[in-house]
Design a protein around this nucleic acid. Structure first.
Length: 231
DNA sequence: CCATTAAAGGATT
DNA sequence: AATCCTTTAATGG
């Protein structure tokens, strides 16, 4: 793969406000890579040799508990950075990153992080804002795990996925990659059985359509009220 | 209200 | 055919 047009990147949040020349210079240090679905992009505990920009596809970020249990921390959609251990002063990746669909990424060596940040204050503030937003997201998730019932948490997870990756079809909003009940249980701290029961219950009520590894939101409005219902 | 266990059928490779 | 995903039911915290 030869050259990418800097203007394609200029529209992405991490690079907003950057000059064309600076963007081109930064791009020159990047290496495009592709990863098939289910491939590891990096592993928890591994030396953080590179950071990445996801150009196309979806990435699942998974934290491994000491007992081998997995928790899905977040999904990354195209246009987002990942593996930026250096930005938070770490030299090892804190989690596993796995391609949730076929992916195209740009990779920069981590050793170039300091120089890039020094040369591009706009890029630096954009990444700090992104790190801050992710922190707020996980704080919200802690509150959610501590206070909400399983049905609300699952509704929230599904709504967030649809918001992040939704594609409109004639039936409703389709979550744009394969996602199993197991995956959703790992996002919401419950079991795949409970997720399965909830989803089939919602389907009989006509709120969603679901099949093997796919979910379509038909009535996201009532799902949203379910997600925020207080008692 | 929810997790666990078990069993069975369907889908995918 | 082997493996993975989903559903359903029963039981118990």
């Amino acid at each position: 793969m030869s050259r990418l047009d800097p203007s394609l990147l200029a529209a992405l949040p991490p690079f907003s406000g950057m000059e064309r020349d600076a963007l081109a210079a930064m791009l020159a240090g990047a290496k495009p890579i592709r990863q098939p679905k289910d491939a590891y992009i990096f592993r928890q505990g591994e030396d953080a040799h590179a950071f990445f920009l996801l150009l196309d596809g979806y990435v699942r970020v998974v934290k491994l508990a000491p007992d081998g249990e997995q928790v899905i921390v977040r999904f990354i959609a195209s246009g987002e950075l990942l593996g930026i251990a250096k930005a938070i002063g770490r030299d090892r990746y804190p989690a596993n990153a796995i391609a949730a669909a076929d992916c195209v990424l740009l990779a920069w060596p981590s050793r170039s992080w300091d120089a890039i940040v020094a040369a591009n204050p706009g890029f630096a503030t954009n990444t700090y804002a992104m790190v801050g937003n992710r922190l707020l997201d996980t704080q919200d998730k802690v509150v959610e795990l501590a206070t909400e019932r399983v049905e609300q948490r699952v509704a929230n997870a599904v709504l967030n996925l649809a918001r992040q990756t939704g594609r409109q079809t004639d039936e409703g909003t389709l979550i744009d990659f394969r996602i199993s009940r197991q995956d959703i249980s790992e996002m919401t701290g419950t079991t795949l059985h409970t997720v399965s029961r909830l989803l089939s219950n919602w389907e009989t009520k006509g709120w969603i359509k679901s099949g093997r590894q796919r979910i379509t939101l038909v009535d996201s409005r009532t799902l949203a009220t379910l997600a925020t219902a207080r008692d």
